[in-house]
């Protein structure tokens, strides 16, 4: 009887494992089926490197380069802001803050992670964008930079909690060994603790960036939604995710435009897949 129970449980776990993989594969095929259909209308080269996104003109112009660059600028901006801030925050929580403050900060970071992205978009729109507009004397405060800042705050909680975990789990004997050699606390942090935690830190950065790339709601509200080739971070841009979200509702099923949106989805899928893969590599580098 007990044997039988074990058997059933084992099979259920096996099944759910397979189900997960199956879903990923199904999603991929679903995307690929409609996404690749685009290439009946246009070539992959024109799709990936075309500089004009104007699906409603006649004939439709389907080039995702401006959208890709929009995503890229927003993502790089968010990374530049969130990585140093997240690192500093994680180091402070794990190494410097006194015990009572550590608990409060960790709870705070988790709370930040729980804020829905629409709320961040809302705050960004009403508070952040006027500031950006004012500081840089822009015609509009809805720019790539505005999106980057808001996204940075969405990436930071993920980054901080994973980084903090990996810094805290650096064995105590490394820290003691370093201090016993006459190193200062700060030297110990950047010469021993951070290198020892580096695989976790890299993974944290990758996952944070993954979240930024996939984010839709806040960028749609904050980046100005102009699908033109961006020249500076202070220009309005439109990301790939925002394009799909904004246009899916108004496209005709089976049209070139419709397939193009799926193709964008396919590109996004590829990018996030790559990033997760790199994060995994980083995490396992330690036990090579």
């Amino acid at each position: 009887m007990r044997r039988f129970k074990e058997f059933i449980i084992e099979k259920i776990i096996l099944l759910s494992g397979f189900a997960c993989i199956l879903f990923v594969i199904l999603i991929f095929f679903f995307l690929a089926k409609d996404g690749l259909a685009l290439f009946k209308f246009s070539s992959p080269w024109n799709f990936l490197f075309g500089t004009l996104w104007s699906p409603l003109s006649e004939p439709p112009q389907i080039g995702i380069l401006p959208l890709f660059l929009g995503s890229l600028i927003v993502t790089i901006g968010a990374a530049v802001i969130s990585v140093p801030l997240g690192m500093a925050c994680a180091i402070f929580i794990a190494e410097i803050a006194p015990k009572w403050m550590r608990e409060i900060l960790k709870a705070g970071v988790e709370l930040l992670a729980a804020i829905p992205s629409i709320v961040i978009g809302f705050i960004g729109m009403t508070m952040l964008s006027p500031i950006v507009k004012h500081i840089f004397h822009l015609p509009t405060g809805l720019t790539a930079l505005t999106g980057s800042i808001a996204l940075a705050f969405m990436a930071i909680p993920t980054m901080v909690s994973i980084m903090e975990d990996s810094i805290s789990s650096v064995p105590r004997i490394y820290k003691e060994g370093s201090l016993a050699l006459g190193a200062t606390h700060w030297q110990t942090i950047y010469r021993v603790i951070i290198p020892a935690a580096s695989s976790g830190i890299v993974a944290a950065i990758m996952l944070g960036i993954g979240r930024v790339i996939g984010e839709t709601m806040a960028v749609m509200m904050l980046t100005g939604n102009a699908s033109v080739m961006p020249h500076t971070i202070l220009a309005p841009v439109r990301t790939m995710t925002a394009t799909i979200a904004a246009e899916m509702g108004e496209t005709v099923r089976g049209s070139e435009h419709y397939f193009a949106l799926f193709a964008i989805g396919l590109v996004l899928f590829g990018i996030t897949f790559l990033i997760n893969f790199l994060a995994d590599m980083a995490r396992h580098r330690k036990n090579k």
Partner: peptide, 13 residues
């Protein structure tokens, strides 16, 4: 005044 520990603790470098 330096110290050698019970468990060898070379840094992961």
């Amino acid at each position: 005044v330096g110290m050698v520990f019970q468990r060898p603790n070379p840094f992961p470098l």
